[in-house]
Computed example of a mutant assay.
Amino acid sequence: MKGLFNLGPVFGYFFRKNDPNRTSNFNLRTMHFINKLSMAMFLVGFLVLLYRWFLR
């Protein structure tokens, strides 16, 4: 149960450095941007739900 709420890899995905050994192209950069955007939108929506449930 402890590993279920481990958010370290999620935040590591947002703030990691570029690997110079990995090739990069437009499709890969676009995929990572969309993944980051969708995770950020999910977290914002989740915070809004928490606000509505607990503070209203």
Rank of each mutant, 00 (worst) to 15 (best):
K2R: 07
G3K: 14
G3R: 14
L4F: 06
L4H: 04
L4W: 06
F5L: 13
F5W: 13
N6Q: 07
L7I: 13
L7M: 11
L7F: 11
G8P: 01
G8Q: 12
P9L: 08
V10K: 05
F11G: 00
F11W: 06
F14Q: 00
F14H: 01
F14N: 01
F15N: 03
R16E: 06
K17Q: 05
N18M: 07
N18V: 13
N18K: 08
N18I: 05
D19F: 01
D19V: 02
D19N: 13
D19G: 04
D19R: 02
P20K: 04
P20G: 07
P20M: 03
N21A: 15
N21H: 05
R22T: 12
T23F: 02
T23Y: 02
T23D: 06
S24K: 06
S24G: 01
S24N: 03
N25V: 03
F26M: 09
F26I: 12
F26T: 12
L28T: 06
L28I: 09
R29P: 00
T30H: 07
T30D: 02
T30C: 00
T30W: 03
T30R: 08
M31I: 10
H32A: 03
H32G: 00
H32E: 14
F33T: 11
F33H: 02
I34A: 06
I34K: 08
I34D: 03
I34G: 00
N35Q: 13
K36G: 08
K36Q: 08
K36L: 08
K36W: 02
L37A: 15
L37P: 00
S38P: 00
S38H: 02
S38Y: 01
S38G: 01
M39L: 15
M39Q: 10
M39T: 05
A40M: 15
M41Q: 11
M41V: 14
F42V: 04
F42A: 09
F42G: 06
L43D: 00
L43A: 11
L43I: 13
V44H: 03
V44T: 08
V44E: 09
G45P: 04
F46Q: 07
F46T: 04
F46A: 09
L47Q: 07
L47S: 15
L47I: 09
V48I: 15
V48H: 05
L49T: 14
L49Q: 14
L50M: 13
L50Q: 07
L50N: 13
Y51F: 14
Y51S: 05
R52Y: 12
R52L: 15
R52N: 10
W53D: 13
W53R: 15
F54S: 12
F54D: 11
L55Q: 11
L55T: 15
R56F: 02
R56V: 13
R56A: 13
R56E: 14
